[in-house]
Amino acid sequence: MIKLTDVSKKYEKEMVLKKVSLEIKKGSIFGLLGSNGAGKTTLLKTMAGIYKQESGDLTIDKQTVFENPTLKQNVLFIPDLPFFFSQYTVKQMAEFYADMYKDWNQERFDNLQKVLDLEVNKKVARFSKGMQRQVAFWLTLCTMPEVLILDEPFDGLDAVIRQKIINLIIQDVADRNMTVIISSHNLREIEDICDHIGILHKGSLILEKDIDDLKSDVHKVQIAFKDVPTSLFESLDIVHQEKRGSVHLLIIRGNKEEIDQLIKQTNPIVYDLLPLTLEEIFVYEMGGVGYAIENILV
């Protein structure tokens, strides 16, 4: 289990993380979302033990990560720009990894070569951006990590490779109970694979929840009436309201059955209740903290 208690981090005078508290269970796939510059990468690097927090506690399986080489054997981080030694071939990189990580799995390395179909004797620098990322996954997965921390991991991967990589990650989660933390801007992608998500904004964690709970807590309602019952709107916890012609579009927080009942009592002519997509949740939650989408006219 990964546990953060009031973790704060600053760069010189600028506070980048403000008292972030978070728990990630073993075997979970956690999605970290956030506005640009929210501190996602800083948070991931702190979890990976690359940065040291100014205050607060951060433990993985009750051990501190920072400067703990034994623990770091099984905590792997892939940055948004994967790093390789210049002039090294894939094979030389693999030898380096095999030296560094005691759980290095050569058999898996050879098997993955067939899956990814990349040349081992080619210099990594000569590969394309997407292929370099594949190499990063290839090397990392062969160290048999317990915790895998990924910063914008699917950037630059085509749909087929992305699916392959996600499948490999999921196998490790199913087989070895690996914990995965993913930051991404591609909400569609995160929605499909994560079971928990957290939203970071200006260094604070504004939300952390089971993704299905999150979805069953907010609903999108499209509704039209002959006579608009004003009392209905008062009795609902409305996050957002819009009117398009005679159709009202509402984002409502609360229990699905209760909302359903309240609305049905008013005999609407048109009525649809839909779960929200993660993208919509993100937009409305961010709107709640003053990071709204405004239609900009230039």
Partner: peptide, 9 residues
């Protein structure tokens, strides 16, 4: 999970 590429959880 493996066949469908879905989170085991």
């Amino acid at each position: 999970a493996q066949e469908m590429t879905i989170n085991p959880n």
